[in-house]
Amino acid sequence: MSIPTHLKYTKSHEWVKPEEDGTVTIGITHHAQELLGDMVFVELPQTGRKLEKKEECAVVESVKAAADVYAPIGGEAIAANPDLESEPEKINEDAYSAWLFKLKPDNASDLDDLLSAADYEKLLENEDH
C-alpha cells in the first residue's frame, strides 16, 4: 500500500495530518496495523489532557499484542474517535481514515521535525532488511 504524501509520520509509526484550523489529527500507519493484526481494543486520551512530545497517550490492542501510541508533538488532546470503541477493526480496514485522536499543538513548528512520506518509506525499507 502506498504511503499518503499529504501526511507526516513518526518513527513509531503514527501518521499526523495538519488540519486547516491549526489542529492535527493522529492515527497509526497501515504498516503498524499490518504488524499488529486484527484490532480488538483501543484506549484513547481524555479530551483536555496535556501531552508532551513522545508521551504514551493511547493503546491499540490486536488479537496478538498491545502497542503504545505516542504523541507525535506536544499539545492538548481535543478529540478522540468515538467509532473505534465499538469498531476497532476500522483501523485494519483503512488505517489512514480511522484516526485515533486530535491535538491542538503547543508549537505549530514542531510539525517540521516529523518525517515526510519519503522519509517514512525509507524507514520501512530499512526495517525490512
Partner: peptide, 8 residues
C-alpha cells in the same frame, strides 16, 4: 504461519 490475512 501466524495467519493468512485475518486471524479473526
Amino acid at each position: 504461519p501466524l495467519h493468512y490475512g485475518s486471524q479473526l
